[in-house]
Each structure stands twice: as C-alpha cells, then as structure tokens.
C-alpha cells in the first residue's frame, strides 16, 4: 500500500498547456493587428507668434517655396563674402514633384548660414498655396541637419520651423 502511494506521488502530472495556448492564441492576433511595419514618425513645426522684433534680434533664414524653386533670404548676412541667398531653381522645369526640388543646394546654403550664426535654430518657411505638402516636408528635412557625404544626417542646423503663408 505504502509502495503504491509513493509511486503515485513521484509520478509527475502532465503540464496542462491548454490555458497558455489559449492566451497565446489570443495575444498573437491582437499583436498582429497592432503591429505597424511602416513606422510613423513626425516633424515638428510651429505657427509664427505675433510680436515686435527687437532691434538686436537675429532674423532667422527665410525660405520661400514656389513652383519655381526655393528663394532663400538671409537677412543681416548680405554683406558677408560668399553670401548664398537668392533663388535655387528646380532641377526640372515646372517643379512637378518632390524630386524636382534641389534640396541639396538648399541644405548647403543653409549650412553656410548656420556657420555664420551657430546659435540660430529657427527657420521660416513660406510655401506658396500650390506647393504640395511633401515638398514642405522635404524642405524641413533639408533645413534640419547639416548635409554630409552620405546623406542629410549631420549636425543639427535649424530644427525649429515656423510656417507662414507665402507671398500671394
């Protein structure tokens, strides 16, 4: 009798995996539906705030975006040698899509402005009404970081973006 009881006690019961399987079977469809294989990121911008500019305040670079290209204005730097402000035309006539704009040239010129005024972090974008949204995002990307040989992922240039309506 004692032997029989002992043998029953040492005999391990099978692990009941059914509840675990149920849990996992529920979790996997939930996680599969929640999984994002394309990551959503974001770019920050602000609306311009009204106020009177002080005389000693540095005017940030202004980039007008139109269906002709970019027009860069660097107020206060015009008399410096190598001033790169002015029109940056599109690579193809008509500026039909995002790739038509010359972001590399814009980034190079903004890098020059950053070297002149390292403390400035603001940039003002002035898109025309007919400019498509992806061009605006591309311009913000170009202004955000220094151009490098392997792409635009260098030091931070102008991460604080204000957007105002372009010239009519």
């Amino acid at each position: 009798m004692r032997e029989r009881r002992r043998s029953r006690m040492t005999e391990g019961a099978d692990l009941d995996l059914l509840p675990v399987m149920n849990l996992i079977s529920l979790l996997i469809p939930f996680l599969l539906t929640a999984t994002q294989f394309v990551s959503t990121t974001s770019v920050a911008a602000t609306a311009p705030t009204a106020g009177v500019a002080k005389s000693e305040e540095v005017v940030p670079p202004r980039v007008s975006i139109s269906r002709k290209g970019f027009d860069l204005a660097l107020v206060g730097l015009e008399d410096r040698p190598g001033y790169p402000g002015g029109v940056i035309p599109c690579l193809t006539a008509g500026c039909e899509n995002r790739d038509a704009y010359d972001y590399d040239a814009l980034a190079d010129r903004l890098a020059w402005a950053k070297l002149q005024r390292p403390d400035t972090v603001d940039v003002i974008l002035m898109p025309q009404p007919d400019v498509v949204y992806e061009v605006l995002i591309g311009t913000m990307d170009a202004a955000r970081s220094m151009p490098t040989a392997g792409g635009r992922a260098g030091a931070v240039m102008f991460p604080v973006v204000s957007i105002v309506a372009g010239k009519p």
Partner: peptide, 28 residues
Amino acid sequence: RGIPYAALRDVLSTASRSGFTRFRFATA
C-alpha cells in the same frame, strides 16, 4: 503627401487661431 499647401494653410490657420500653435506633421 499630394495635398496642396492651400488646404493645409486653412487647417493650420484655423488651429492656430483656436490656440493650437504647435504642430507635428506625421511622416513615414
């Protein structure tokens, strides 16, 4: 991505005048 800025301008302007002045543009 193909929306003209004119449409966004009105949305941003409305948001700005309603007290929402900080934006995050969703991107891929």
